[in-house]
Design a protein around this nucleic acid. Structure first.
Lengths: 220, 220
DNA sequence: TGTCAACTGTCAGTGGCTGTCATTAGCCTC
DNA sequence: GAGGCTAATGACAGCCACTGACAGTTGACA
């Protein structure tokens, strides 16, 4: 039960202070990504970013834990969106099937969620930058590892298993995560940075898992 | 043709200068790991390490590109040793089989190679520290990702394939790498830090790959 | 409108890391 | 075995990411 028309709901107007904060945050994020993707991550100082938004350096650090976090903030949206997609899969799907479908069907929602904060084009450029900046790639891989832990829990719960007893939830997620990493790398560094090519690559790589486990590859 | 007894060969005596360098390097490495594992990585400053070996901070940075590299140097030995083991696998083995055997049979050689530089006990402690220090884990995962790239090439060459055309080499390595990551995490954070438990965990997890891909997990 | 709390700027300081230059110490030749 | 060459080191200055502390400013709310 919520009020609908007459009052746009108290939650819709977060107050001037809150809106201002949001604006500063988004401005810093956009400025950071813009600078990172044009001059390079290492070559960009925090002072530059702060100056571009006309705030003090200290304020930047009040919005982001560090330079790194600003560069990866956009990926957090992606990851949370994906986690939600996995949780939403129907219970009858097999674990790997659920993970696969969550990716394939989730990309549109991910695109929309991203677009609310920064232009999609900037997001795609940022992805390429992360992949080719050692410090950022490292941080990204660690975050992905943490996401994997969460997915392990979700899968185990779906199947009513204990993660520490049955190796299958962890192994399943590991296999899936490994394949997604390959997909991601190829996508980010390849020429076609579209959602469509992402879907195609994902499907192709996941379909290649069984053949890869085969004894003899030559018998085609 | 080399002189044997009377002269211990010219290559065996790298000269005083070289030996001194080696000693400084090893001393810095040991001091760093000792401090990292006792006080924690973040809580240890480079000055402390340098002081413990009685050299200037500047000298530390001449031996290691950064604090991080000192903490991970020991893993580099492991990784190179593993790459050598993979390359040495007979050609008749299937890709995944070769990767598996290289791990299972390679651990002894890895242990020996490590022991030449630091006590094995220190190595094991360091492994646990890396796993539980975000900055180090991130760097470690990135290095592992690079090693994976190299293994992809090796697998592709073994099978006479092109990495960019056939997805199987990359997918195989991704699956294997994912499973090894799970194994590594469980080993480093578990109670039993022995080569034997590593072998057992590796085998168990690799054996769990096929069952994990199954449609229904309940039909046991 | 005045009080409170949140947001911000300024300043000082720490630690990782780099460039530069003078000094030291193996190495090699005559 | 004295002297020149060069690699290794130390000392110093400086950049940048990041943090704590304190004071000033500005929404929020009675």
């Amino acid at each position: 039960m919520e009020t609908v028309a007459t009052e746009p709901a108290a939650e819709e107007r977060p107050g001037l202070r809150e809106r201002k904060k949001q604006r500063t945050h988004d401005a810093l994020l956009r400025a950071a990504l813009e600078l990172f993707t044009t001059q390079g991550y290492e070559a960009t100082t925090v002072d530059e970013i702060a100056e571009a938004v006309d705030v003090s350096q200290r304020t930047f650090f009040r919005y982001f834990a560090g330079k790194e976090e600003a560069a990866l903030a956009i990926l957090e949206i992606t990851q949370e969106q994906y986690l939600a997609a996995v949780r939403a899969r129907p219970a009858h799907e097999a674990p790997l099937e659920a993970l696969r479908n969550a990716v394939l069907e989730g990309w549109d929602a991910i695109g929309e969620a991203v677009a609310e904060v920064v232009p999609v084009e900037l997001y795609l450029r940022a992805y390429g930058m992360i992949e080719s900046t050692p410090a950022l790639l490292a941080a990204h891989l660690r975050r992905s590892d943490e996401v994997a832990r969460e997915i392990e829990r979700i899968v185990a719960e779906r199947e009513g298993l204990d993660v520490d007893t049955d190796p299958r939830p962890r192994v399943t997620v590991a296999v899936f995560g490994g394949v997604m990493r390959v997909t991601e790398r190829r996508w980010a560094l390849g020429g076609d940075l579209s959602m469509e090519s992402m879907r195609a690559l994902t499907a192709a790589h996941l379909d290649a898992v069984r053949p890869s486990l085969a004894e003899k590859w030559r018998t085609d």
